[in-house]
Design a protein around this nucleic acid. Structure first.
Length: 123
DNA sequence: CTTCTGACA
DNA sequence: TGTCAGTA
């Protein structure tokens, strides 16, 4: 699929997709006319990025997360001599995401309070 | 019409 | 991240 298609499918502006691509976060090929071409794999990555963003991950952090996920899902990871360290990092990532999730909940609670404070002011 | 790159806001 | 320009 082209950038426009990708952008539409993940509901992110084509400008942003292009930016992530330029930053090396997406696996893309080029058409004869130099158009970016993406596969389902790129789409899956884009979705992961979309979920990471609201958690506050920076592009650099996303780069690491994606690399870790790739390494963990690679067929060779089963025999990788560093399997323990890989699992270790996955555990750390999970803890990190859990912590960010908590932060989001606090934000939601804050929004609820604002809403509640508005209620008595409205007709 | 869509995408590309680079630049500016 | 949006938009504008000039292309392919």
């Amino acid at each position: 699929m082209t950038v426009g298609e990708m952008a539409e499918r993940v509901e992110i502006s084509h400008r942003t997709v292009r930016y992530y691509d330029d930053e090396g976060l997406l696996p893309a090929r080029r058409s004869a006319g130099n158009y970016r071409l993406y596969g389902e794999d790129a789409l899956a990555r884009m979705m992961t990025i979309r979920r990471l963003k609201p958690l506050g991950f920076t592009l650099e952090e996303m780069r690491k997360v994606l690399a870790l996920l790739d390494a963990a899902s690679a067929p060779s990871s089963a025999t990788d001599p560093d399997r323990p360290q890989l699992l270790e990092r996955l555990v750390e990532l999970e803890a990190d995401v859990r912590q960010r999730r908590e932060k989001l909940e606090e934000h939601v609670a804050g929004a609820d309070e604002i809403i509640a404070s508005l209620r008595p002011l409205l007709p």
